[in-house]
Nucleic acid binder design. Structure first.
Length: 436
DNA sequence: TGGTCCGAAGTCATAAGGTG
DNA sequence: CACCTTATGACTTCGGACCA
């Protein structure tokens, strides 16, 4: 501006010099006025020393922590056990920054395992249960239990007749159940049992408390996906309920489905909540727009979203009979059928049961003759000591098992097998070695 | 051409909300 | 308390604008 009017003076040079020298500073200052949020970041960035993040620290020590917790990968390790191994080490590397268990177990540990493609035996606590129809196997929705269960799935096995008669052993969907029912709440189990829901429709019922754990999704993925069984989902009419429904039919950060599963919504949906008690939706800090998007992604219609933003209806608002009526109406509408195996298996089973019947008649005859001819049975001396000696040798047995072995050494194997079988019947799929 | 700066987009770590 | 998820603030990265 000035140079055309008058010759440059020393003053002009000084001004230029000052402006040049301070231009960067001015620029920064003005930028900071426009973006006050950046000030802290910039100062911290200029003054901070490079430090280790919790993630970096975790990456350094994770393997050692797992190996310690799992006794060199020979036993299953609970996420929490690994955490206790890892925590002091991570904190030492990060200026004692507190390490939250949730962050460790939900983010660091699974991310590490995924990134390194590891085959570690990491275990989370069971949450909820699943129960087969007819067999009454009731198993916890935990990592180990689900894995063991999936390992043992089998085709129906016909058990040949012996003293106890022929039977058919079934573990899993084949010959066992025709669909899986997922219920958001565990509390309905007594009701389902009272009306015999599972047995009458050959349903395996899975319930977790709230959002499904990954073990439950893995179970559903395998059982439904590999056998083409439908999954029915029962949930509240609320934001969480739709989320529960949504996470069972799409991939999330923590679990990706390997199979395609046909997921059927049993409600509650708009059509189901007429006349039911509504309560205000739980307060949330999430904006309505985000909720709307989420809900739509989880399958809610516009009309439903309109209600869900303000109100909710619990499954508990239904009377027991109305709930069962609704479930069965929808199962019927779907066309769910009882399990009936193919002709070949039916034939085999028929023959074996027939044989069993004949054997029983024979046995009863023999029993009559036997009772007449028996005399007093000799009992070995020092039976108590003998039992104690057997138990010392095989501490996993009970006293009556020991008597059988005293009577006949060759029984040991059978006794063991019986015990194992009994445990499986009762739904103990935790496997002998068990969690540490 | 090569250094500096900006800010959108991405990552990390945590908080908070939900189930029973 | 366990677990799950999404939201969010703090920080980090990085492509491109800018400038000398």
């Amino acid at each position: 501006m000035s140079e055309t009017k008058r010759p440059r003076s020393i003053g002009d040079d000084i001004i230029d010099a000052v402006e040049t020298a301070t231009s960067k500073w001015t620029r920064q200052k003005k930028s900071e006025e426009r973006h006050p949020g950046m000030i802290r970041y910039r100062t911290s960035r200029m003054t901070k020393e490079p430090r280790t993040t919790q993630k970096e620290a975790a990456w350094q020590i994770m393997e050692a922590a797992y190996m310690a917790a799992s006794s060199n990968d020979s036993l299953p390790a609970l996420a929490r056990q690994i955490y206790y191994q890892a925590r002091p080490k991570i904190m030492a590397l990060t200026e004692d920054k507190e390490l939250a268990y949730g962050y460790f177990s939900q983010t660091l540990l699974p991310d590490y395992i995924e990134e390194h493609d590891l085959d570690w035996n990491v275990v989370y606590d069971a949450r909820g249960h699943f129960e087969e129809p007819h067999t009454n196997r009731n198993i916890g929705c935990g990592t180990i239990q689900v894995d063991n269960y999936l390992d043992k799935l089998t085709e129906p096995q016909i058990v040949k007749a012996d003293f106890s008669g022929a039977s058919v052993d079934v573990i899993g969907p084949q010959g066992g159940y025709s669909a899986v029912l997922f219920c958001e709440k565990e509390g309905f189990s007594p009701l389902f049992e009272a009306v015999n829901l599972a047995n009458r429709h050959d349903l395996m019922i899975v319930s977790t408390k709230g959002v499904s754990v990954t073990a439950a999704r893995k179970l559903i993925d395998s059982v439904c996906g590999a056998n083409n069984l439908p999954l029915f989902v029962l949930h509240d009419f609320d934001v969480a309920g739709f989320m529960i429904f949504g996470t069972l039919r799409r991939d999330t950060r923590r679990y990706q489905f390997a199979n395609t599963v046909e997921v059927i919504d049993l409600g509650l949906r708009l059509a189901d909540i007429a006349g039911l008690e509504r309560e205000p939706a739980a307060a949330t800090r999430t904006s309505a727009d985000i909720l709307r998007t989420q809900l739509a992604e989880n399958g809610a219609t516009d009309a439903e979203i309109g209600i869900l933003l303000n109100e909710r209806v619990e499954l508990n608002a239904m009377t027991s009979d109305a709930l069962i009526e609704m479930i069965e109406r929808k199962l019927k509408a779907y066309g769910l059928k009882k399990v009936i195996p193919d002709e070949e298996l039916l034939t085999q089973a028929y023959r074996e049961f027939h044989r069993s019947q004949l054997l029983r008649e024979k046995f009863e005859e023999m029993q009559g003759e036997f009772e007449e001819s028996t005399t007093e049975i000799e009992v070995p001396k020092n039976l108590q000591e003998k039992v104690r000696a057997r138990l010392n040798k095989h501490p996993d047995l009970r006293w009556d098992d020991a008597i059988q072995i005293v009577l006949d050494k060759s029984q040991l194997h059978e006794v063991r097998a019986e015990k194992q079988k009994a445990r499986q019947k009762s739904g103990d799929f935790t496997d002998g070695d068990g969690a540490a």
